[in-house]
Design a binder for these strands. Structure first.
Length: 646
RNA sequence: GCCGAUGUAGCUCAGUUGGUCAGAGCAGCUGAUUUGUAAUCUGCAGGUCGGGGGUUCGAAUCCCUUCAUCGGCUCCA
């Protein structure tokens, strides 16, 4: 007998070799139908795998990530089986479960192309196969046997994977006619795979290496119930409606022009207003926190970037240097502000007493991003960073770093950005040639970041190999409407540029000392931040950010004079307001302006003219009743103050 | 940059196998209407069907090429 301990602490005895599924069945047949995987002694396993020692057991229903993992991983195998039956000779790369669904990377051979129009056929075959209720069976094999099996299929991708595995750890899973190299876990059978949707097909380099072959990646998702799939598809549709590219067009915030060039955003008046509101707000916060605002040119001599090291690292991937009529001169479009700021630092002598020095700029930079990477406002070739550099003494670094974490959290809080994650990005110690700077400085910087984040009780995930080439960083990441992750704020410790630019300050010992530099942004870039704001708010910006605060709607043209008077008062009170003078019915005017997400609609008719009031209607909430114009002015001002005061 | 898809009026989209197929709705402009909390009616105007080649008696429709966009991959100072 073995003792099984459940999550609630209770324990029961079962016969040796019993499976998790059998235990579930004994608890209740219904439970057995709802579980998809089990964690046995901390390891996620197939339900059908026998347990042969005392163990803790957690059974995973759909709500658990572990259940979804097994479910979607099994779905990937089912898709592979369907593909193999439809495309004999197809070779298989990897097919994991992902956050939402699964994919499989396949090589259909050079003659065959799989496109989205083929997905329905594959989907149908998957449904046929799933309905056969095929069991997933697990088998441990030797490396030799595994290689033999996949060599026979001449599947060079699987054999490559197997050749890197340690003998004795290799398992195969089989369902129906399909056998795959796989660590598991899987469902007991294909029976629960009822609602299936293949979503898209894309290219993906084998093993993520752009020098290797590009395979065909097919994305799909499955659910145990059709209703869940339907809900998911509705969710995807709604997410598309929140896409900042779509809303940006609808609300006339920004645009792109082929003539101007790809990835070069054109801010329309309303988008510019939002942008400017953000700049004004952040500038006032920065001034209170001791930042000095600087301004630097959009180009710099190529030697500037040779000094900084950026030219060597990114020179060939950048907009190429600009040649001048004067021979031998070369300038680059500014790809970052830091070298300029270093030279500003060097323009004046510095004392240890003046540190830390905080230098901020809304600096527009230009980067030649690969054409396929451009994406709305989130990945562009020209963007404005809310950039700042802190120059401090080594002993101030930790505190300075923490103060920036504070600042970022403060700004995010004001903007109601709660859904972000913090990521510590370190260098890959296996791949040191990607980075510049001494081991000692790297180790010191990485330690500083980790400890500063810990001291601020900031929950972080650590990612190896994501550091900038000159230093480790702490990034604040958010997801867009359809789940893509973007970096917003970032804090980066840099011991490197101060060396390269020979930055110094006079210490109390009257000797020259080297400051430490911290790069930081809060928004990341105004472009990306506005994009995320649009998706978070679906275009219903908070009042203080809204480009137009109110629109006056006269019920008929008879009231246009009064409307004009109201307009003048509001605009003179810095409440940006328009009049909708069209000879439309009030219902139409309300509808149109609601769709434009105008925060307040001010309806004016006979009653209002008589009483010298306005009827206030709030976006999304409807009629709020009448008030005097001055009342409305102070109401709006107090609402705005509330939004940006903490 | 790579793989795949897409590209028709300002916007959202129809256009079967190449032959009145250049259309609709919204937006715009007209005129009528003078309206009380999410769509009043009339009329008009708008496009070398992304660009450039080609096949054909004939191309939005087929082929080639190029540009851009979308979904991914790679990249992201």
């Amino acid at each position: 007998m073995i003792k099984i301990t459940f999550p609630d602490g209770t324990a029961r005895e079962y016969k040796n070799g019993i499976s998790s599924l059998e235990i579930a069945e004994q608890i209740s047949p219904r439970l057995a139908k709802e579980v998809y995987a089990a964690t046995v002694n901390g390891e996620i396993r197939d339900l059908t795998r026998p347990i042969d020692l005392d163990a803790t057991l957690k059974l995973h229903k759909w709500e658990d990530e572990a259940a979804k993992l097994a479910f979607w991983h099994s779905s990937a195998h089912l898709m592979a089986e369907a593909l193999e039956s439809l495309y004999p000779g197809m070779k298989f790369g990897i097919g994991p479960a992902i956050e939402n669904g699964f994919y499989y990377d396949v090589d259909p051979g050079d003659e065959t192309v799989i496109t989205e129009s083929d997905l329905q056929t594959v989907e149908n075959r998957m449904k046929e196969l799933a309905a056969k209720n095929l069991t997933f069976s697990r088998r441990e094999v030797s490396k030799k046997e595994a290689l033999y099996i996949f060599k026979k299929k001449s599947d060079e991708y699987k054999t490559e994977l197997i050749s890197e595995l340690v003998d004795g750890t290799i398992t195969l899973y089989t369902q129906g006619n399909f056998t795959d190299l796989c660590r598991g876990p899987h469902l007991p059978s294909t029976e629960p795979l009822k609602a299936i949707k293949l979503l898209s097909v894309a290219g993906a380099y084998w093993r993520g290496n752009e020098k290797r072959k590009m395979l065909t990646r097919i994305y799909g998702i499955t659910f145990p119930k059709q209703k869940l799939l339907d809900d998911y598809l509705v969710f995807l549709e709604e997410a598309k409606r929140r896409d900042h590219r779509r809303i940006g067009k609808e609300l006339e915030l920004f645009t792109f022009s082929q003539k101007v060039g790809m990835g070069l955003p054109l801010w329309l008046p309303k988008g510019s207003d939002i942008r400017q509101n953000l700049i004004n707000f952040l500038t006032s916060v920065l001034r209170k926190r001791g930042y000095k605002i600087v301004t630097t040119p959009h180009i710099g001599n190529v030697n500037l970037y040779k000094t900084s090291g950026h030219f060597e690292k990114y020179g060939t991937d950048s907009f190429q240097p600009i040649s001048t009529p004067q021979e031998g001169e070369q300038f680059m479009l500014k790809p970052m502000n830091c070298p300029h700021h270093c030279e500003i630092y060097n323009a004046t002598p510095h004392s240890y007493k003046d540190m830390p020095l905080r230098m901020a700029e809304f600096g527009t930079v230009y980067r030649y991003e690969q054409s396929g990477e451009l994406h709305g406002l989130t990945r562009v070739r020209s963007f404005t960073q809310d950039d700042a550099h802190h120059f401090c003494r080594p002993d101030q670094l930790r505190e300075e770093f923490k103060s920036i974490i504070d600042l970022i959290l403060y700004i995010f809080k004001i903007l109601n950005f709660n859904d972000f994650t913090a990521q510590v990005s370190l260098r890959d110690p296996e791949n040191k040639q990607k980075y510049i700077g001494s081991d000692e400085n790297w180790e010191r910087a990485e330690r500083d970041i980790i400890e500063a984040a810990a001291e601020k009780n900031l929950e972080t995930t650590v990612v190896i190999g994501e550091a900038a080439f000159y230093g480790p960083k702490l990034d604040f990441m958010v997801k867009d409407a359809i789940g893509r992750k973007w970096q917003l704020g970032t804090i980066q410790v840099d011991y490197n540029l101060p060396e390269r630019f020979d930055l110094t300050y006079n210490g109390s010992d009257n000797q020259k000392h080297r400051p430490v530099m911290i790069h930081r942004t809060i928004f990341g870039s105004l472009e990306r931040f506005v994009a995320v704001l649009i998706e978070n708010t679906a275009g219903k910006f908070p009042l203080w950010l809204a480009p137009e605060k109110a629109v006056i709607l006269p019920i008929s043209e008879k009231f246009n004079d009064y409307a004009g008077k109201v307009l003048e008062i509001l605009n003179n009170s810095d409440i940006c307001t328009l009049i909708d003078e069209r000879s439309e019915k009030i219902g139409k005017k309300i509808r149109d302006n609601e769709l434009k997400k105008i925060p307040y609609l001010l309806i004016i008719g006979e009653k209002e003219v008589e009483n010298e009031t306005i009827a206030v209607r709030k976006q999304g909430e409807g009629d709020k009743g009448s008030m005097k114009i001055e009342e409305f002015v102070s109401f709006i001002n107090s609402e705005i103050k509330k939004e940006i005061a903490f």
